[in-house]
Amino acid sequence: MSQVIQHDEHYDPEGSKIGMWLFIFSELLLFGGLFIIYSVYRYLNHDAFHMAAGELNLTVGALNTLILLVSSMTIAMSTTALQKKQKGTAILLLEITFILAIIFLINKYFEWGVKFDHGIFPGSEYMKEEMSQGEVLFFGLYFVMTGLHALHIVAGLVIMGFALARVHKGTVHAGRPTLLENAGLYWHLVDLIWIFLFPLFYLIT
């Protein structure tokens, strides 16, 4: 006979939470490496970075900041709703967060698109000929850091999608909210990184 046994399912919300935090730590250090690079090159090319930052669109940047801040609040509230057993509200708040994240990406798409139209993209001839080395570095870092951040938004969308499906199905509920809480933690990380990216790229003119 086959002796298939189920490991008695080990549910440890505190453990999952630590796991998520540890993952967040390693994500922070991933961006940390980029922040080190940024700070070194900014130190070495002070004026060029200021010049280059002037090219960025402050309005779009500020708008995206607001979008992320609001979405952070809505996903946090979603957990509260779930814990208060208001499933409908929880789902609604999660969906709002989801849509805000997509709006962020659309903004980013147009922002990058404008840069590309101006001939500003990694490896472009225009940049090599018209720009100082400091400016090339600034935009190199701009694309890498905001690009990596956008990737994290996409990852956040995937996690939110899972959470949304599970809340719908009822396997994530007031008694077992861990998945939703972890989705929230991850989303706040995305917000946290943007809080630093915004001033470092848009506000140093």
Binding site: A76, G184, L185, L192, I195, F196, I204
Partner: peptide, 23 residues
């Protein structure tokens, strides 16, 4: 000091996110 100011405000903001949003 502009950058210092901006970074200081960013730090305050992030500590708010950590303390309340991230529980």
């Amino acid at each position: 000091y502009t950058v210092v100011g901006a970074l200081l405000l960013a730090s305050i903001k992030s500590s708010l996110v950590l303390t309340y949003f991230m529980h």
